[in-house]
Each structure stands twice: as structure tokens, then as C-alpha cells.
Simulated assay, not measured.
Amino acid sequence: MTVFLLQNEPAIRMGFFLGVLVLMAAWEFAAPRRRMEIPRLLRWSNNITIVVVDTLLVRLTFPIVAVGLALMAEQKGWGLLNIFGAPGWLGFIVAVLALDLAIYLQHVMFHAVPALWRLHRMHHADLEFDVTTGLRFHPVEILLSMGIKLAVVAALGPPAVAVLVFEVLLNATAMFNHSNVRIPIGIDRVLRLLVVTPDMHRVHHSIHPVETNSNFGFNLPWWDRLLGTYRAQPREGHEEMTIGIEQFRTRRDLWIDRMLIQPVRGPASGYPINREEDDQR
């Protein structure tokens, strides 16, 4: 089974990606959380195009991706888990938790460093919040993210299967928690103890910086609670809250050409975590 999974990694990841995308899109149509004001054709065409660009750039830039590097580390005995000879089940659990924590910390870093925020704010500049928002990242951010992930894999030496499972989970949960779907409050309250829910992550896409700089988790919700970045609800409620950031609020800014040049447009003030206290609101 392990050999099969690793040999068919691209097909497995693509299958889960398309399956979750279609499932969440159908759920959004059937039970939306918020009314959408901007035509889906405008946003979806540009958001999906950017993920195609991101994928092609990663494949062209990196001769090896995370699963391949993990397999090489296993074969050559690289990384802490291989050095200490951790049993497979323990290595799997540690790997998934460590990789998820790394993604959380990376996310915080992209909010804390103004130069990195310039890249990451493209994700936040979407004027609506739905499944395609979870795909919308600047290509340079994606390349930096892959470099960080490869460094973590090389240092940790996780089982290749654990990396594959994590990659699939991260992609699936990113689409799930960005979806415009209605989940009963009681179910959401329980569900967010185990996974980041759409209502939990939507707070992170609020126009208010103090809310933008909360709920950084993509997959597991525990890091936000443990490290003090958890915020239960937006101040204006989910139906009335404004999505996005103060910059780039026209529909023209949703086009892919404008998205790609956003890092060099305007100041990077207002939202980075280390901004002046007077700017908080």
C-alpha cells in the first residue's frame, strides 16, 4: 500500500483536490453562509488560474517536492526521526503535528514581516470568502512556502507517507475552511475542537487588523488556542462582517494581472503584526 501511494502521489493529490473542490462548491450552492455580491465567474476564473500558475512554477522550480525529499531522507537516514530510529506510528504522528505547526508559524511570519505580508496580502485581498479563496496565493509566497516545507522535511526526516497524508489534508482543509458553507452552531462548536472550521477561519479574513491577525491555523485548531491567537467570532457577525483588507477593494483588483503585482503596489502598513499600537483597531 505504501509503495502504491508514493508511486501514485500526483494522481492521488489531484483526485482529492478535485473531489474536495467540487464537494465544497456544491455545498456552497446548497447551503451558503453569506450572500455573495460578486459574480463567481469573475473570482473563480482568476483564483483557479492562479493555482494553475502556482503549481506549474513549483514543478519547474523544485527538482524534488516534499514527498520525494521525505522518501530520500528515509533511504539515506537523514533527519531527527531517522537518526533516533522512531517507530513508524510515532514518526507518522510527530510528522503530521510538526508539519502543521510549521505551517502555522510560517503563516504568523507572513503576517509579522512587512515584506512577506506584501506577498500574503494577495490571499486576503479577495473580496468574498469561498472555496476558491483557499487556492489564492501569490506564486512567490508558494515558492517560499515550499522551500520552508522542504527544510522542515529535511530536518525532521518524516515518513514519506506521513508527508503525503499531510499534503492531502492541508489542501483539503484549506478548501474546507475557506468555504462559504453553513454549519449549525452546535456542530461548529464541537468540530472546531478538532479542525479549523469555516466560521473559525473566516474571522481571519476580516477587514479589521486585530481579527486578521488571529486564527492562523489551516488544519489543526490547537496552535491558535495554545499560543494565544484564537478569536471565537468576528465583532460584526459572520453575515455582516467585511471580508478583505482596506487596500485593493475594486473588482478590477480581482483580476490575475492585478493580483500578481499587488506586492509592489502601495504601502505594507496597517496589517503586519508588528505595526504601531496606534494602528490597531
Rank of each mutant, 00 (worst) to 15 (best):
A30F: 10
R33A: 15
V58Q: 05
R118V: 12
L254G: 00
H238C: 08
M36R: 15
L227D: 02
F62P: 06
P39Q: 13
M200S: 05
I83S: 12
I38A: 04
L101C: 08
I183Y: 03
Q75L: 14
I38K: 04
I38F: 08
G91I: 09
N219T: 10
V113W: 13
A86E: 07
L60A: 14
E74W: 09
F84H: 12
W78M: 06
V22L: 12
F62C: 11
L18N: 09
F17P: 02
L5D: 01
P221G: 05
W27Q: 04
N47D: 09
L156Y: 03
V67Y: 03
L18I: 13
F248L: 11
F4Y: 11
I185F: 15
T250Q: 12
D126H: 07
P159E: 06
D278V: 14
V108F: 14
P159L: 10
M14R: 12
G217D: 08
D54W: 14
D257L: 12
G157T: 06
H123M: 04
R265D: 13
E239T: 11
Y230T: 04
V94R: 00
P32L: 10
G134N: 03
F110P: 00
F62A: 06
L150H: 10
M24D: 06
I207M: 14
E277N: 08
F92L: 11
M122I: 14
L23Y: 00
D257C: 11
L169G: 01
G147P: 06
L71M: 13
Y104P: 01
H124N: 02
N219F: 15
E128W: 03
F92S: 06
H111S: 10
N47S: 08
K76N: 14
V58H: 02
W27N: 06
Y104N: 03
W78I: 06
L105P: 00
L119Q: 00
F84C: 02
P32V: 08
E37Y: 10
I185Y: 15
R258W: 10
H238E: 06
E240R: 15
G157C: 07
A98F: 10
A268L: 14
I245Q: 00
G68D: 04
H201F: 06
S179N: 09
A160G: 08
R33M: 12
M241S: 06
